[in-house]
Amino acid sequence: MMRKKTWGIGPVAVALCALATGAFGEPIHTRPDEAVLASFDIIETTIVTQGETAVFTTRVRGEAGKDKPDATGRFEGSSVYAYVWPTTLDSGAIGFDRAQGIVALAVTFHPDFDDAAYGGVNRHIWHPHWVVLAKDAACGGGLKVVDIPKGAKPKVPPTWPNVPLLIDSPDYKTTFRSDAVQVEIPVSLITGIRGASFDGVASGLKVNGNLHAPLLCVSDVFKVASGNLSLPGKVSPQK
């Protein structure tokens, strides 16, 4: 059985919103924890630049991507599993309005709905998203994907999937190899990625059963690379 940590608003949201930029530590190494499901037991997290490509990598104790949420047959109340890299990037760097919240890259799997760009189908594969997170005490993990209020017309990137959330569905190369998940993104598409700070998280999210805001909550935190979401990693060129 997977041990699920349901963290209140204090430990998760406060640590993330602090966005500690003074710490260094690339890669972030993490002790294995037999109490965490092996596919989510993070042991190493990195973001490096290789020339003009930013490479996001998370290694786990087991087989990355092996475990997926059960299908419910409904959108409302359905679950999402995710490998997440929270960062100090500004939301303007990924095509949204500036200063909207905490920018994170997430590789997700959700069997009950599609949220690909341009109406594409992605419910049966692991796939990447940019998400903007904010504190919300209504969520078990203290954080939500930022909602877009009805009638609002915020700036969104071209691959926004037309859902009322600050979420983007770009088509980045995403690879699972044994114990690692890796995403490759052109540096030119992420303003400020060089020198940004980061962390690693394995988490569960849940769609609100009433389809009201908050629509998509961080519901469970399976493991945090730093242990306290202090964002100790620093994006640097690969040595």
Rank of each mutant, 00 (worst) to 15 (best):
V145H: 07
N122W: 02
W160Y: 13
S188W: 02
L165T: 11
A202G: 04
N210I: 01
A54Y: 07
T45N: 05
V201S: 01
Y118C: 02
S203G: 04
Y172E: 05
V221S: 12
P170E: 13
L133S: 08
V181P: 06
S79A: 13
K153R: 13
A152G: 01
L133A: 10
A134P: 02
S178G: 07
T87R: 12
V80T: 08
L105P: 09
N122S: 05
L16D: 05
Y172P: 10
V80Y: 04
K239S: 14
V183L: 08
R31Q: 14
T30S: 13
Y83E: 04
S219T: 11
G192P: 09
S230D: 11
A134M: 09
Y172D: 10
D114C: 08
P164C: 04
T21G: 15
D33N: 15
L89S: 10
G200K: 00
I148H: 06
Y81K: 02
V183C: 06
R123T: 06
G141P: 07
K144P: 02
A117K: 11
V131C: 02
P128Q: 06
P154M: 00
G151A: 03
V48W: 14
G8L: 03
A35P: 00
R98D: 12
T58Y: 03
K239P: 15
I167H: 03
E63V: 06
H29T: 15
A54E: 11
E44Y: 01
K234L: 13
G51M: 03
R31T: 11
K153Q: 12
F176I: 15
V145T: 14
A196T: 15
P214F: 05
L215M: 15
N162W: 01
V207K: 06
P158F: 05
M2G: 12
K234T: 07
W85L: 11
K223T: 01
H29A: 15
V146W: 00
G209V: 03
L165Y: 08
A116F: 05
H212V: 09
I102G: 06
R98L: 02
T21D: 11
F24M: 10
P111D: 07
L89V: 08
S91W: 01
T45A: 13
G95P: 08
A137L: 02
